[in-house]
Amino acid sequence: MGLDTPKSMLGSRNEEPGGELRLGDIPLSQTVELVRIDLPSEGAEPLLERGVLPGCQICPVRSSPTGDPIVSVDGSLLALRRETADCLCVRLLSDAS
């Protein structure tokens, strides 16, 4: 499977103004919305099955001893690898909403 083709990327390709934010850059307790998963489908599937879908809200709740993020999605606690968190494009929730 071609990794570099746009088709293998999941989710909408709308670029956020002001550069892209990755889940790995988000400080603890800051809730964000998932925009896109930059992974081939095989890698994205475990995330999708656990409710990590574009449009869902994610909040990093703590950092593991090895510095990997532990996030809360829909009341589920999920441990991710840094590398996986860096494949998740997110956007801040606007204050208005």
Binding site: G43, V52, T84
Partner: peptide
């Protein structure tokens, strides 16, 4: 291939 790692913490 580069995959993902996600694990439930019950």
């Amino acid at each position: 291939q580069p995959g993902s790692f996600v694990m439930d913490l019950p």
